[in-house]
């Protein structure tokens, strides 16, 4: 034995799990949705994703190296995930410079200004998206039509999202039965044939990703399921009360950013609660806020806002809601 024995406190074995592996699995889980997006939006989806990913990685690297003067950690994959998620939240005909601004806001303000990975209170991709939505409302809400605009990037034909159609229609005094003639049916929605941000359209592809994340134990089911249940129950009650002026709960689940938000954005480790009880509160809050914004708010869609608002409550939830301690109940009884 020529080498010195290592001495460290227990445990002496490790699961082999790493941040890189977790992030890699998230990327894998996003691939089906990306594939569907490229199928529907073609060139635009590809270009937007590429620009968002490259600029997020670049900003992360540059900020860490030259501004914070630390060893860049882009290899951990978190910037890659942020870039993909940012792209998934953008229309596929967004001009490149707006995407770059979005990436800068996501990484620079959303993440690095708080101290980098693990310290940001808000989901960086959503910070970028909401910044762009408020700053560039026109560009951010002109959605290329699926299939028809496949060969185009900037000059694609555009239309509205189903949610916007419903909102406009109801505002104009129409009833759901007349509006539903203009919007895709639930089966089409499940397959993603609608206008929208490039990653949010294909519910089935996102659900495949969800299954992968659960299988790989990257996330737990609590947050997505609590969001789905809340949205389904809330819109279901509204629909039962007045079906003429409220869309059915399946429509609400399958449109807009619910799937993408619930599965990939709300479950972001850094900005979600640390135990199942807290996750339920978080999920119910997101679901309720989403429906409130959709039904009574000015915007047709509210998932991003709902997640960001609930992100702000996470520290409070973590402080107030504790996991079930071993031996706790017995103590109360005794």
């Amino acid at each position: 034995m020529n080498k010195l024995l290592a001495v460290s406190p227990s445990p002496h074995v490790h699961s082999g799990e790493s941040v890189n592996k977790l992030m890699f699995n998230v990327v894998l889980a996003l691939l089906p949705a990306l594939a569907v997006s490229i199928y529907y939006f073609g060139l635009g989806a590809f270009v937007v994703t590429a620009i968002a990913v490259v600029s997020c990685l670049a900003f992360e690297f540059l900020i860490q190296k030259y501004l914070l003067k630390v060893t860049p950690s882009i290899s951990d994959g978190s910037a890659l995930v942020t870039g993909l998620l940012l792209a998934f939240n953008l229309p596929s005909n967004l001009p490149w410079w707006i995407i770059v601004i979005g990436a800068l806001v996501s990484i620079g303000i959303g993440k690095m200004s708080f101290g980098g990975l693990g310290n940001n209170p808000f989901n960086p991709a959503l910070v970028g998206r909401v910044f762009l939505l408020i700053s560039f409302p026109v560009q951010m809400t002109s959605w290329p039509l699926p299939i028809e605009s496949r060969a185009h990037y900037m000059d694609a034909l555009t239309g509205a999202t189903p949610l916007a159609l419903v909102k406009e229609g109801l505002k104009g005094g129409q009833t759901m039965s007349t509006i539903s003639e203009h919007i895709p049916n639930n089966m089409q929605l499940l397959m993603g044939s609608m206008g929208g941000s490039l990653g949010e359209i294909a519910a089935f592809a996102l659900l495949i990703g969800f299954a992968w994340l659960l299988f790989k134990k990257v996330i737990t089911w609590h947050i997505p399921v609590s969001i789905f249940v809340t949205i389904f129950a809330f819109t279901g009650i509204l629909w039962l009360i007045d079906p003429a002026h409220n869309a059915d709960p399946f429509f609400h689940l399958l449109t807009g950013g619910v799937m993408l938000g619930a599965i990939f954005m709300a479950t972001d480790y850094v900005t979600s609660p640390m135990n199942p009880k807290g996750m339920w509160i978080f999920g119910i809050g997101i679901g309720a806020l989403t429906v409130i914004i959709r039904v009574w708010g000015a915007y047709p869609e509210g998932v991003s806002f709902a997640i960001l608002i609930m992100n702000a409550f996470v520290p409070l939830i973590n402080t107030l809601v504790k996991p079930k301690r071993f031996g706790e109940e017995v103590k109360k009884n005794g």
Binding site: V19, G116, Y269
Partner: peptide, 20 residues
């Protein structure tokens, strides 16, 4: 590396504590 707050430590703790 830095903590990503994945909550895995919380879910595996047999005493229901929050190691992070």
């Amino acid at each position: 590396q830095s903590c990503v707050r994945c909550a895995k430590c919380v879910s595996v703790c047999p005493m229901g504590l929050e190691p992070y």
